[in-house]
Design a protein around this nucleic acid. Sequence first.
DNA 1: TATGAATGAGCCTTCATTCAT
DNA 2: CATGAATGAAGGCTCATTCAT
Lengths: 207, 207, 207, 207
Amino acid sequence: MPSRKEREREFHRRFILERAVSLFAQHGFEATTMDMIAEAAEVSKGTVYNYFSNKQELFRTLIEWGSGRAREIGQETLSTPDTSRVERLGMFVQLFLEFFETGRDIHKILMQEGDRTAVSMKDTFGGPLRQNFMQLIDFISEFIAEGQEEGVFRTMDPHKSAFLVLDIITAEFRYSVMTESTHPLTENTEETTSRILELLGAQEVTR
Amino acid sequence: MPSRKEREREFHRRFILERAVSLFAQHGFEATTMDMIAEAAEVSKGTVYNYFSNKQELFRTLIEWGSGRAREIGQETLSTPDTSRVERLGMFVQLFLEFFETGRDIHKILMQEGDRTAVSMKDTFGGPLRQNFMQLIDFISEFIAEGQEEGVFRTMDPHKSAFLVLDIITAEFRYSVMTESTHPLTENTEETTSRILELLGAQEVTR
Amino acid sequence: MPSRKEREREFHRRFILERAVSLFAQHGFEATTMDMIAEAAEVSKGTVYNYFSNKQELFRTLIEWGSGRAREIGQETLSTPDTSRVERLGMFVQLFLEFFETGRDIHKILMQEGDRTAVSMKDTFGGPLRQNFMQLIDFISEFIAEGQEEGVFRTMDPHKSAFLVLDIITAEFRYSVMTESTHPLTENTEETTSRILELLGAQEVTR
Amino acid sequence: MPSRKEREREFHRRFILERAVSLFAQHGFEATTMDMIAEAAEVSKGTVYNYFSNKQELFRTLIEWGSGRAREIGQETLSTPDTSRVERLGMFVQLFLEFFETGRDIHKILMQEGDRTAVSMKDTFGGPLRQNFMQLIDFISEFIAEGQEEGVFRTMDPHKSAFLVLDIITAEFRYSVMTESTHPLTENTEETTSRILELLGAQEVTR
DNA sequence: TATGAATGAGCCTTCATTCAT
DNA sequence: CATGAATGAAGGCTCATTCAT
C-alpha cells in the first residue's frame, strides 16, 4: 500500500521523465544536459538527482519504459487465444503503430539507441533494451512458428522472419519521419499488415 | 600531377579517417574524443587538427564518404542498359551487401546517424547524408516506376516502395549485427533479392 | 528587496572582480588565464563561470565599471551650479586623481585598453569604453565652451582642448607609475589644476 | 665588411619585421600568431624562426627599433649647437610627428606596450623600451635644465617637465587616432610646439 | 636555408555530480 | 525534500616551437 508520499513521489518522477523524453529525442543522450532537464521539469538540478541517481539511470529508465511497452504489446496481442493469427497480427500492428504515434519521442530514442545497441553490446543501455527487444522477437518468432505448424504461414526461419516483421513495421515510422508526413501512422495499419502477411506467405490473404 | 608530399598527405588523411571510423561506430559522435582519435591514429592531437579543421569536419567526411558510396552503387547498378530489371536488382543488392561487409563500421555510423537524421532534419550532418540518401531513393524509385510501366512490377507507390526495398536490404545488416552472425552478408544476396522481388510483385520470379 | 542569497551572490561577484583586476592590470587580457583568476579568487574555475559567462564578459565588466566611474566624475563635478569654473575644475581634477589613487589597477587596465581602443575601434571592449570616454570628453568640452562664452577661458577648439585636459591629468598617473613614486597623486591636485588653467588661458589665475 | 650573404640576410630580416609590424599593431602581441606573420611575410613558419629565435625576440626587435628611433630623434635635434632652443624644440616636435606619421603601426605598438611597460617593470619587453624612453626623457630633461639656466624657460622640475613635453606631443597622436582624423600630424607642428613653449614658460614666444 | 608537418602544453569552456543551507 | 552554488575532470581547439626532408 503505497502511502500518499510514495504516490506523490512516483508522480513527480514520471513528470520529470516525460519532460526529459523530448529533450533526449531531440538532442541525444550526450547533448542533453541535466540543466536542460531540470529546467524543462521546472525543478532544480538537485531535485532531479533526488529522483534519479544520475543521468544514465534517468535515461535507462526511459529506455526500459519504452522497450518494455513494446514488448508488452507483442505479449498481449500475439498470444490472444480464440483469435485467428491474421487478426492477432493486425492487432499487433495496430497497437504498435499507435504506440509510435503516441510516443514519437520515446521512439526516436529507441531507434537511435536501438541501432547503437545493435552495434555495441556492452553498451550501458543495451541491457534492458536488448532484453526487451529480444523477448519481443521471441514472441513474434513463436507466433510465426506456431502459424507454420498450423499451415497458415509458409515455411521459413521464424527467428529471422520475426526481425523482418518488425522491420516492416518500423519502416512505416522511418518513412513517415523522412517524408515529414503528417498522416497518422495508424492509417497504414491494414497495408502494413497485409505486407507482413505476404512476407509470411499467409494462405488466406486476398488482396 | 600531385607531388609526393601531396600524396603522402592524402594518404595520412585517409589513415586517420580509417582509424576514426571504428571509434565513431563504437561510441557515437559525442562520446568519441579527439584524444581517442589521435591515439588510435598514432599521432598527436595537433596532427589530427592539421588534417581536419575540427571534429565535425572529420565526422562529416566519413558520412559523405559512406553515403556517397551508397548512392553510387544505386546509380551504377540500377540504370545499366541491356540488362533485365531482375538482374540489375540482383547486382544492386549484391554490391550493397558487399559494401556493408567491407565497411561494417562506416555502416554502423550511417545507420545511427541515419536515424538521427530521420529524426531532426536540421542536424549538421544531415545535409550530405540526407541528400545522398534521397538521391539513392530516387534511383530506386525510378527503377521501380519504369519496371511498372514495363509491366514487370505490380502497381504500387514507387517512392514508398523504394524505402521498403532499402529497408529490406539494411534489415540484413541489422539482423547480422543483432545475432552477432559471422556469416558473410553476401551469402544472403539471392534470398534478399527474391524477397524484394516478391514485394514488388515481379512476374517472372519463381521460387 | 534583494534576498540574502542575492546579496551574497553580488558580494561574491564583486570579490572575484576585485581579485581579477590586478591580474589583468599586470598581464593584460590575453595573458591572464581563467585559472589564474580562479586561484586568485580562491574558488574553482567553474565558480568563476558561475558568475561570468566568459572571460570577455568578466573583463568587459571591469572596463565598464572603471570607465563609467570616470564619466560620472566628469558629470558630477563639471556641471555643479553656483560654483566658479575654476572651483569645478579643481574638484574634477581632485576626484579624478583620487580615483586613480584608489583604483590603480583598474586604471592601468583602462589606459592599456584605452590605447588599444584608440587603435582599433572594432575592438570588443572598445564599445562601452569608448562611449564612456567620449561622454566624458563631451562634458569637459561643454565645460570649456561655456567658459569661453563667459570670457573665462581663451578661445580655442573646445573638443581638442578637452583631450588635452584629460591628457594632462592622466600624465600625472603615467609619471607616477614610471617614476615608481609613492607619493599620493592627490598631492599634485593644485599643480595639475593650474597647469590646465594655464592651458585654457584662464584669466584669474595668478601664479 | 658584410658579405653579400649577410646583407641579404639582413634585408630579409627587415622584410619580415616590416610585415609583422602591422599585425602586432592590429592584434597585439598575444593575438598575433607566427602563422600570420609567416603568411604576411610570404615565407614559411620555419623561415621566420630562421631569422628570429622566437616570437618574443621578433617583438622585442620591433620595440627596440621603434623606441631607439624615438631616442635618436631626441638626441639629434635637442643638442644641435648653434641653434636657439626654440628652433631645436620645433625640430624635435616636427621629427617626432613625422615619425608618428610614417610609422603609425610601430607607434601603436609602442604606446600599447609603453603603458604596459609603465605598469609592470619586470615585463620582458620593458627593458629596452624603458631604457630608450628614459634616455629620451633625459635628453629632454637636460635640454630644459639648460634652458632654465639660460633664463629661457621658467623654473620647474626639468624631469617632470620632460614627461609633460612628451605627453603633449603624443597627445597629438592619440587625438588623431581617436577622432579618426586623416590630416597629417605634421600640420600641427607649430601649434604643438607653441603649446610646449607655453608650458615651459618660454619668454620670447608670441602667439 | 627553406619548408611545413608534427608535437604537446595549455587555454577556454562545459557539465555531471556533490553538498551546505 | 528542494535548492543552486561549488567543484573539477574532461573536451575541443590553438599555437609556439621543433625537426626531418
